[in-house]
Design a binder for these strands. Structure first.
Lengths: 203, 203
DNA sequence: GAACATTTACATTCAAAACTGTATGGTTAA
DNA sequence: TTAACCATACAGTTTTGAATGTAAATGTTC
């Protein structure tokens, strides 16, 4: 095969990732072969083995794209309005997270990670799930601590429990929704749950 | 091989299910072969193909064991004390659910269903997850409606939203915990979340 | 800047392993 | 005697990783 330019090579790498995303989503990770991915991208397994070490490596590269730290959502909100109360900031940041979920690619990769893959030879998707969750937890906790310092939280609610409540609720919601995104609107139902949660939490 | 008595045959069927449970849990469903399951039970693939049609059939038989309708938890609570307020009934039923999760077999099968299996040829674990969730939802909703009729719920909280909040929160909690049951005590953390949720929900 | 050498970016081919489903065989409970 | 219960043997497919081929892009030298 003729050698491609660096830009073309990068493009085929992207094409492989996109193909993997689609086939993984459609058939699950375990039941898709590298052959199928390559063909779906109009290439052969040679290309796959050139750009990635193996299936696990390809999977890792795919999931690397979905890091959604809570911090960036907060920044997004703070930039729009710097004078928000901590609870309102959390509320809006959660809403911003829902908006991001409307991006189809984002949706598919998250769905693959949560519902369409198992163990791997040396890859453990559960660890990735946990890592992403922990990052968000730490960042949200800081804001809830701020809310408590300003005496905005109910007296019988600690920042730790508040954070866990939000995390678990959102996590469960995402799981349910990604299982069947057509069943209901995530912005609508998620928005309701977020708003009522925050409302119940404030003093 | 010599023919076994009916009781012995039933015992080997159970042994196969138990072996499947352990190997599925340890290696994930996709990456375990029927050979491995049979050997782990001290048998051969012949036994597997006699008792089950194929891997999907074996998987179905395994998951059939974990139906946990919310109703049975409520009954369990009602039997202990018939004069409970609806909110207290829900609270105790959720606690009872946490207790059931301590049963190792229960834990493993649920973990397989949630985290250790993908699609199948004709089996879709996501449908099972959804079905189990929906059953619990309907039953819990009824009790929350009762709570509203007795004016025990916050005025700004509908029974539907209350139910969804509890469901999502518990679902997210289970997912997190089953990912790594050693990380924290489900009864402790789950108990906290349940209690605070109910407390925040009441008028 | 032209000629040459070297990599790159894949396609193609090959051997090996793993897994499945079925078919067959043997023994004993019914 | 029959057929349940399971072991064993067999054929077939699928997938993987590595080896090999190759033409163009890139680097190097003068």
């Amino acid at each position: 095969m003729a050698r491609k330019t660096k830009a073309e090579a990068a493009a085929t790498r992207e094409a492989l990732l996109e193909a993997a995303e689609e086939v993984f989503f459609a058939k699950g990770v375990a039941r898709t072969s590298l052959e199928q991915i390559a063909r779906h991208a109009g290439l052969t397994r040679g290309a796959v083995y050139w750009h990635f070490k193996n299936k696990g490596d390809l999977f890792m590269a795919l999931v690397e794209q979905v890091r959604m730290p809570f911090q960036s959502l907060m920044d997004e909100v703070d930039k729009a309005d710097a004078e928000l109360s901590p609870l309102e900031s959390i509320r809006l940041a959660c809403h911003a997270g829902l908006v991001r979920l409307e991006q189809p690619s984002y949706q598919r990769i998250l769905s693959i990670l949560l519902h369409r893959c198992e163990f791997f030879s040396d890859i453990n998707p559960l660890d990735m799930q946990e890592q992403i969750g922990n990052e968000c937890f730490e960042e949200m906790l800081n804001v809830f601590v701020l809310a408590e310092q300003q005496q905005l939280l109910r007296e019988d609610l600690s920042p730790e429990i508040a954070t866990r409540l939000m995390q678990s609720m959102l996590g469960g919601l995402f799981h349910d929704w990604l299982r069947n995104p057509g069943a209901f609107s995530i912005r609508e139902r998620g928005g309701e749950l977020i708003d009522t949660s925050i409302r119940m939490m404030q003093r």
